[in-house]
Design a binder for these strands. Structure first.
Length: 317
DNA sequence: TCGTGTCAAGATCTT
DNA sequence: AAGATCTTGACACGA
């Protein structure tokens, strides 16, 4: 199997590696003139986009081909203060440059709207806000020149004291999505409510790829064996490369908290159960130390039996 | 400059 | 019914 590694949002190993800069609403509102408020957002956006391109260049230099964009690239994009602001038009050149760079270097990119974005809420206002947030993500990807290959990962949502009904609501709302969101949406199992089996069944029902989060599976399951689920999960990706999220538990806190780095033993254990299927896949490392965790995992795996290092962020096993 | 409380978003648990 | 907690990196403020 050939496995590529990537990381989330920001690079710690370089200067100016954060595309996450923002401003709090409270502070933004202290600026008297609305036009000046917008200028504050513009300056932050310009800085974020410059840092984002820098991060992609760093990734390219280190063979990192899997990357998740931050949702904060355009600060407060979905807040009332930014209503009507044509950020995609104003920053068309910068956004397209980022997209072009990623394509030129064969990067697989995605985004993960945060856990306030819910397609299965019974509250219409929550659905409306979620649609707005998804539209923002899709708008940024459109402006970068990406099609449906650039995925948006979300969770199923709340349980609302009835997962079956809540999953039905998800299915109904999914069908109503505009094409530039619907075609990009993929679903991940979470660490509290929806198990890998729940999400697999949902993904099969609506024909959507499933992201397996290995750590979430160990936090939230009903005794299923991951080796049994993996072939069906991988099958939801059809001809494209499956993607897996991987993190390790931070010692001394609740099991759900993410550690600085990824345990190579835990990752090897996953590779062992995936080995029967012998299908290539990508891994998004969700570690506090971001890109440093990619480098460290590669260094640790290099010493392990059966691992062949292909480049700085790819192995064969 | 450092430490720390706060933050746009919603569900869920606790009181 | 109201408030605390979860989670994240970064802001914002006071010492």
């Amino acid at each position: 199997m050939r496995i590529r590694f990537g990381y989330v949002a920001m690079a710690l190993n370089i200067m100016e590696g954060s595309p996450n800069k923002t401003v709090t609403v409270t502070n933004l509102l202290k600026i008297a003139a609305p036009a000046d408020r917008l200028n504050r957002l513009r300056r932050l956006t310009r800085e974020n986009l410059a840092n984002q391109l820098r991060v992609l260049k760093y990734n390219a230099a280190h063979d990192i081909h899997v990357f998740r964009f931050t949702s904060k690239l355009i600060p407060l994009a979905t807040h009332a203060e930014a209503t009507g602001w044509d950020y995609a038009g104003e920053f068309a050149a910068e956004l397209m440059e980022i997209g072009d760079f990623a394509r030129r270097h064969n990067m697989r990119v995605s985004a993960h709207p945060d856990h306030f974005t819910l397609l299965n809420s019974p509250d219409e206002k929550v659905i409306a806000a979620s649609l707005e947030d998804l539209a923002y993500h899709a708008r940024v990807f459109d402006a970068m020149g990406f099609g449906n290959e650039a995925k948006l990962v979300i969770h199923v949502g709340g349980a609302y004291k009835g997962k079956d009904k809540a999953m039905d609501r998800f299915k109904e709302n999914y069908q109503l999505l505009p094409e530039n969101i619907k075609g990009r949406l993929i679903i991940e199992n979470d660490d509290k409510s929806y198990t890998a089996r729940d999400v697999l069944e949902l993904c099969q029902a609506i024909t959507v790829p499933m992201v397996l989060d290995v750590h979430h599976h160990y936090c939230c399951n009903e005794g299923e064996n991951l080796a049994d689920l993996w072939p069906d999960i991988a099958a939801t990706w059809q001809d494209s490369l499956p993607k897996v999220h991987m993190s390790s538990t931070k010692e001394g806190t609740n099991v759900r908290a993410h550690a600085d780095y990824i345990s190579s033993d835990e990752f090897i254990a996953f590779m062992d159960l995936a080995k029967n299927l012998d299908r290539d896949f990508d891994v998004m490392l969700e570690a506090k130390q971001k890109d440093l965790a990619v480098h460290k995992l590669m260094a640790d795996l290099e010493k392990a039996a059966g691992v062949e290092v292909v480049d700085e962020a790819t192995i064969a096993y």
